[in-house]
Design a binder for these strands. Structure first.
Length: 210
DNA sequence: CACCAGGCAAGTA
DNA sequence: TACTTGCATGGT
């Protein structure tokens, strides 16, 4: 099957992806919000600021002011709206599980996903990143690169929506969290390097004759 | 200088 | 359903 072959080729080409770079589950979920439409390098600066200020902590994030939070995450861009989104997420965690993030994440996969999607500012990609990388759930993360790559290889039509593409991967991949994590990362690697919207470099692409 | 980065929500037609 | 726009910093 094509999707399995896709994983095999990329795993051989790249090896372990190293994603998600976060150390703790809290760092991963905060990073998931901060990286929305933003380069990871800028997210790292924001995360460093949060750590140095001692607020990479559920209670601290719950108690910090909007202005204080916004100023710390400034390097990751969209700082006002992201401060709001982080506050919304932290509030939902507090209301659901108190300050126990592990309890919040230790929930049936689709229940967790729906709780996350209910939060204003958490869309499908961010929710699924939190489920997959933060909570270790077998939920495949779809992004714009993945859609473009599959479309260019004739696997899908442009009418396919997010959940259809997610379902395609989940129905074809083995039940391995490591496979889910690495394959999404590989799709981003390929998208950035070889499958850009303008000036794609198909000659050098590892998926040339996939 | 232009363009992109590991999106989302709200508004319009 | 399918576009369009605002949100904002930092790297290439």
């Amino acid at each position: 099957m094509k999707i399995l072959d896709l994983y095999d080729r990329l795993a051989k080409h790249y090896g372990p992806s190293g994603w998600w770079p976060g150390q703790t589950s809290l760092e991963i979920i905060v990073g998931a919000v901060l990286t929305q439409n933003t380069a990871w390098k800028n997210v790292e600066k924001a995360l460093t600021n949060l750590k140095e200020a001692g607020v990479l902590d559920i209670n601290a994030l719950y108690n910090i002011s909007h202005e204080g939070l916004a100023s710390l995450i400034r390097p990751s861009g969209y700082y006002n709206i992201k401060a709001e989104r982080l506050k919304n997420l932290i509030s939902t965690i507090m209301e659901t599980s108190g300050d126990n993030l592990d309890d919040f994440l230790d929930e049936e996969a689709n229940t967790l996903r729906e709780r996350l999607l209910f939060v204003k500012g958490i869309g499908k990609e961010t929710a699924d990143s939190i489920c997959c990388y933060g909570a270790g759930k077998l939920i495949f993360v779809v992004d714009a690169y993945t859609k473009r790559i599959l479309k260019r290889h004739g696997v899908i039509e442009s009418t396919w929506d997010y959940d259809q593409i997610k379902g395609l991967f989940e129905s074809r991949l083995p039940n391995s969290i490591q496979v889910y994590k690495d394959l999404h990362a590989y799709m981003v690697f390929i998208g950035k390097e070889f499958c850009k919207a303008s000036s794609p470099k198909c000659d050098a692409c590892p998926l040339k004759d996939w």
